[in-house]
Amino acid sequence: MKVEEIVKILDAEILTSGHDPGLEIMHACGSDLMSDVMAYVEENVLLLTGLVSPQVIRTAEMMDIRVICFVRGKNVTPSVIDMARERGITLLVTRHPMFIACGMLYSAGLRGKGVRD
């Protein structure tokens, strides 16, 4: 699923302009626990999270995660957006809460869990 489709499905806003909207995403992971993301995620997932801190961007950087979607219409500070932009990470924000956002993507056909068992 392309990032531009994800944006449409989640009615999301792109916070970092200039990144490839045609980037293909095969897996997604919804988590507020960065410890788990680092311990279990294996694929290049879309990370959906309600946490908005520099350490979310750091975690994505280390894990080669290219796209993050903040759920529940979180306010994202300019410094977090800059950090993501510098690292080539695309940031999205949707007003939908975590459960709904994940459900919408799953229903639309994004099924890969991207985590090890």
């Binding site: 626990l33 960065m34 410890s35 680092m38 311990a39 946490l51 801190s53 350490q55 979310v56």
Partner: peptide, 15 residues
């Protein structure tokens, strides 16, 4: 609250 402290770090380093 910042998303860490699950006790996964050291095992993950080892892995």
């Amino acid at each position: 609250e910042m998303g860490f402290g699950a006790g996964m770090g050291l095992p993950n380093i080892k892995r």
